[in-house]
Amino acid sequence: QKPVSAYALFFRDTQAAIKGQNPNATFGEVSKIVASMWDSLGEEQKQVYKRKTEAAKKEYLKALAAYR
């Protein structure tokens, strides 16, 4: 399975908490809140997710090379 983006990892980590705080929110509303949070996130915090994405990408490429 291809690795997901840094934003997708952040979304996955954040979505449940947002939904818990806003139980009646639609998926679209939750998405807007998470997107706003991502935009206001500091670069250092974004780097945490970007590093996770890079590590997953390297593992994916290694597994793909081994498969071929």
Rank of each mutant, 00 (worst) to 15 (best):
E44H: 06
K58S: 11
F27C: 07
K52Y: 05
A63Y: 08
A16G: 07
L64I: 15
G20F: 10
T14L: 05
I18M: 03
E44N: 09
A35R: 14
E54P: 09
D13V: 04
I18K: 00
K46H: 01
G20M: 06
Q47I: 03
S36Q: 15
I18G: 00
Y7I: 03
K52C: 02
W38R: 00
L9D: 07
D39T: 05
Q45H: 14
T14N: 05
K19P: 00
A56G: 11
L41G: 03
R51I: 07
A65S: 13
E43F: 06
G20Q: 15
K57C: 06
M37P: 01
A6H: 02
R12A: 09
K57Q: 11
Y60H: 15
I33H: 05
Q45D: 14
I33S: 06
L41D: 01
E29I: 01
F10C: 00
K32P: 00
P23L: 01
D39N: 07
A8C: 15
I18V: 12
V34G: 04
P23V: 01
A25Q: 05
G20K: 09
K32C: 05
S36D: 11
Q47T: 04
L64T: 15
E59L: 04
M37D: 03
A55V: 13
P3S: 11
Y7V: 02
A25G: 01
P3E: 07
A8E: 04
N24H: 13
V34W: 00
D39E: 12
F27E: 15
F27D: 14
N24I: 00
K52G: 03
Q15N: 07
T14W: 04
A66Q: 14
Q15S: 02
Y60M: 12
P3T: 08
K2N: 12
K19W: 03
G20V: 13
A35C: 06
K58T: 10
Q21W: 04
T53V: 14
K52E: 07
E54T: 06
R51P: 06
S31M: 09
E44S: 09
K62E: 12
A25W: 03
I18Q: 01
Q1T: 12
W38Y: 07
S40V: 08
L61V: 14
E29H: 03
G20P: 05
K62F: 03
K32N: 15
N24G: 14
L41T: 05
V4L: 13
L64P: 15
V4D: 10
F11G: 00
V4R: 09
K46P: 00
D13Y: 02
K62G: 08
T14P: 02
L9Q: 13
R68G: 12
M37Y: 01
A66S: 13
R68H: 08
R12S: 09
S5F: 05
A35K: 11
F10L: 01
A55I: 08
R68K: 14
A65H: 10
Q21F: 03
R68V: 04
G20W: 03
Y60P: 11
S31R: 10
Q47K: 11
K57W: 04
S5V: 01
Q1M: 14
D39R: 12
Y60L: 04
E54I: 12
V30F: 01
L61K: 15
A8Q: 14
E43R: 06
T14D: 01
Q15C: 07
Q45R: 10
K57V: 06
Q47V: 11
L64E: 15
A56C: 09
E59F: 03
K57R: 08
W38V: 00
N24S: 13
K46W: 00
N24R: 10
